[in-house]
C-alpha cells in the first residue's frame, strides 16, 4: 500500500530548515546560554532523520552526500588538534584562549579556541548519530 506522504514531505521541507537554523543558533550560543556542541549536533542529526523519515534514505543521501564516518573522523581530529595546539604555544595540553573582537555585522564578539573544540564535538555527534541510523536503516 502506497501511503500519501505529501503533507509530511511538505511540512518537513520547512521544518527541517527551522530545526537546522535552531541547531546552528544553539551551537554558537552554547558558550553563553544553554546549548553547545552536543545539543547542536543532536538537533542537526534529528533534522536529517526527519528528512529520512519523510522521504527515504537514498534520496537524502543524494541531497546530503556526506560520508558520516569521515565526518566523525574529521571532528575527532579537529578536537585533538585544538587540544594539542596549546603545546605549540608552550602552555599545558588543552589550554584554551579567548579574546574579544569587533567584527562587522556582529558587533563586539568574543572568539574562543574552545569553540573550535566544540566544532569537533559537533561534527563527531552528527557523524556518529547519522552513521548509526543510516547503517541500521540501510541494512536489509
Amino acid at each position: 500500500m502506497r501511503t500519501n506522504d505529501v503533507m509530511l514531505q511538505t511540512a518537513t521541507k520547512v521544518v527541517t530548515f527551522i530545526i537546522l537554523m535552531f541547531a546552528v543558533h544553539i551551537f554558537f550560543a552554547g558558550h553563553y546560554t544553554p546549548g553547545g556542541g552536543f545539543v547542536g549536533g543532536l538537533l542537526t542529526a534529528s533534522a536529517i532523520v526527519l528528512l529520512m523519515l519523510a522521504f527515504d534514505i537514498p534520496t537524502v543521501k543524494k541531497i546530503i552526500p556526506i560520508n558520516y564516518v569521515v565526518l566523525s573522523a574529521v571532528g575527532l581530529l579537529i578536537a585533538i588538534a585544538t587540544a594539542s595546539a596549546s603545546i605549540v604555544f608552550d602552555v599545558p595540553f588543552f589550554t584554551h584562549a579567548y579574546d574579544y573582537f569587533d567584527l562587522p555585522l556582529f558587533g563586539e564578539t568574543s572568539l574562543h579556541s574552545a569553540l573550535l573544540f566544540d566544532i569537533g564535538v559537533y561534527l563527531v555527534v552528527v557523524g556518529v548519530t547519522m552513521t548509526i541510523i543510516q547503517t541500521i536503516g540501510e541494512d536489509e
Binding site: 552536543f38 543532536l42 555527534v125 556518529v128 548519530t129 548509526i132 541500521i136
Partner: peptide, 11 residues
C-alpha cells in the same frame, strides 16, 4: 550521549 551510543550498539 554515551548511553545513547551504547544503547544503539546493544541494539
Amino acid at each position: 550521549v554515551i548511553s545513547f551510543a551504547v544503547t544503539s550498539f546493544f541494539l
